[in-house]
Amino acid sequence: MTEQVLTSWNEGPAKQAVLEYVHGATTPGPAFVEPADRIATFDNDGTLWVEQPLPPQFDFVFRTWEDEVKADPSLAARQPYKALMERDQEFFEGLATQEPKTVATLLEAFARSWAGTTPEEFDARVRQWTQTVRDPRFGVPYVELVYRPMLELFDLLRANEFRVFVCSGGGRDFMRVFAEDTWGILKENVIGSAAAYTYTSGKIVRSRELLGGLDLGPGKPEHIFAHTGRLPAFAGGNADVDIEMLQSAAFALLVRHDDDQREYAYTKGAEASLTMADQLGWTVVSMKNDWATLF
């Protein structure tokens, strides 16, 4: 089993813990999980792809807002456009750590920017971004900065009848555009902060309202339960905003960013989750030590 799965993972406690959990969950005995309850949920930014210096979705929305400010300069006096135009460092730090109030400000503006558009119009803009914009450090499209070890974990879980979901504070519809090609996850298995839709004149259009609040902190297990009718058996995250989701799962995996050569090394925004991992016995994955291949 260890030779055929998780091939980008180094041998060690993290890989062994994952394999032991999956074996126990699928083998009759005290740790067995019924197939219907085999729900696995994963954060996106920092868990499935690079989130530094800012989560990639913000690159997409900032380009949109810069165009909007050019068209209507009065927007520069309002948040979050003001912070963008002034390069407000405190604001950007709140984004990097996914501070809920800051993220809420952005998502509300994001909803306004795309209100009245159809899914096809929105998808086309995101798809163009994925194909033309490159990460400034690595020089490749952001969708090429997905962690190979996590995709292998998805394969392992699916092979053992787990249904895999992505549950992120980022935009659900943004992630859905590339979910199937990049993660091998169907659109309906993507959970995230989202605009409400209305059906009018024979078509679906985005509204200005957020649907069900932010998918951060306690919002994660709330959204997961609303979407699946279950809480996760397996959950993976990397930050403090993932704590409640990790607490709700039988097996919790926390990705630690400690590889400044191949990626980034930082703990800001993850201090509480790392402390809780020690207290509750969560499995912590060291990028530097546990992953032989990153992307």
Rank of each mutant, 00 (worst) to 15 (best):
T2D: 14
V5Y: 15
L6N: 13
G12Q: 05
K15G: 01
K15V: 00
K15F: 03
L19V: 03
V22A: 07
H23N: 08
H23K: 13
H23L: 10
H23D: 14
A25S: 12
T27A: 05
G29M: 09
A36V: 01
A36Q: 13
T41G: 07
T41K: 03
D45V: 00
G46C: 05
T47N: 08
E51L: 04
Q52G: 02
L54M: 11
P56V: 06
Q57R: 09
Q57K: 12
V61A: 08
V61L: 12
V61P: 01
R63L: 13
E68T: 01
P73F: 06
A76Y: 06
A77K: 14
R78C: 10
P80E: 01
A83I: 04
F92V: 03
L95N: 01
A96T: 15
K101M: 05
L107F: 14
P119I: 04
E120L: 05
E121M: 04
D123A: 15
R125T: 12
R125D: 06
W129A: 00
T130K: 06
T132C: 01
R134E: 05
P136R: 10
R137G: 02
V140R: 07
P141A: 12
Y142T: 09
E144N: 12
Y147L: 11
M150Y: 04
E152Y: 07
F154P: 02
D155C: 02
D155F: 08
N160S: 02
N160Y: 02
F162C: 01
F162D: 05
F165Q: 00
F165V: 00
C167D: 12
C167V: 10
S168K: 02
G169H: 13
V177H: 01
V177I: 14
F178L: 13
E180P: 01
T182F: 03
T182V: 15
L186E: 13
E188Q: 15
N189W: 04
V190F: 07
I191C: 04
G192P: 13
Y197F: 15
V205Q: 08
R208E: 14
L210P: 04
G213Y: 03
P221H: 13
I224R: 08
T228V: 11
L231Y: 07
P232Y: 11
A239V: 11
D242S: 07
E244P: 01
M245H: 03
M245P: 00
Q247Y: 11
S248D: 04
S248I: 06
A250E: 08
F251D: 05
L253S: 09
V255T: 14
V255W: 04
D258S: 04
D259E: 03
A265T: 11
A265D: 08
E271Q: 09
L274V: 10
M276R: 06
N289V: 01
N289I: 01
L294K: 02
L294Y: 03
F295N: 03
